[in-house]
């Protein structure tokens, strides 16, 4: 299998790294070669976070190059925009329908791009879909679970060359025990939303 490159981004505290790890574990469970890299560092919540996951028969580089992502998964729309550099014409983008304006921008009354303007910036990409992951996860009582809705949704759209079995197994490996059930539920809701959209 030729390498699949995924960039996962969002805001600190949203579960970007957990989502990236789930993808990496799923690929690993399928017997693929995997590299995943992430930037840690500041313990604070609220900063921009990005992780790269690459898998295939053989992968070397831990980083996705500009314009070379197969998939850009964003848990927040402004962060999708910040990571636009990874999106080329062959990139599919799935984005949580959520804007978290940075406090500093709000204080300076900076103009915050709107959802449709952000989508417009990805006009060149192969696909750009918003999913109401935040609303869904909130309704299901686990607002931190928007990442799983995005994952399920991407899977439902057929954007992930990974099996359902592998992904569910990965969720069980990566997510703390008491949240596994909820996370799987959110994954499934995300998938159904995608199927209804096809």
């Amino acid at each position: 299998m030729k390498p699949c490159s995924v960039v996962v981004c969002g805001v600190g505290g949203q579960g970007v790294l957990l989502l990236a790890r789930t993808l990496a574990e799923a690929a690993f469970i399928e017997g693929l070669d995997v590299v995943q890299s992430e930037i840690h560092g500041l313990a604070q919540r609220g900063g921009a976070v990005v992780a790269h996951v690459r898998f295939g028969s053989r992968v070397h580089s831990p980083l996705v190059d500009p314009y070379k992502a197969d998939l850009l998964l964003s848990l927040e729309a402004l962060e999708a925009l910040r990571n636009r550099v990874y999106a080329g014409r062959k990139t599919s983008v799935v984005c949580n329908m959520l804007i978290l304006p940075p406090p500093s921008a709000a204080a300076m009354r900076m103009k915050i791009p709107k959802l449709d303007e952000i989508k417009e910036a990805f006009a060149h990409a192969k696909l750009f879909e918003y999913v109401e992951a935040q609303r869904i996860a909130g309704e299901k009582g686990l607002p931190q679970g928007a990442n799983m809705v995005v994952l399920g949704f991407s899977f439902g759209l057929g954007l992930l060359p990974l099996s359902e079995k592998g992904l569910l197994e990965a969720i069980k490996t990566v997510v703390p025990d008491r949240y596994i059930e909820k996370n799987i539920e959110l994954f499934n809701v995300g998938r159904k939303v995608a199927e209804s959209r096809k």
């Binding site: 805001v11 900063g47 402004l78 910040r82 940075p102 921008a105 791009p113 417009e120 910036a121």
Partner: peptide, 10 residues
């Protein structure tokens, strides 16, 4: 693109 992401410092 036209839209620009505002900075999000920690």
């Amino acid at each position: 693109g036209k839209a620009k992401a505002p900075p999000r410092p920690p």
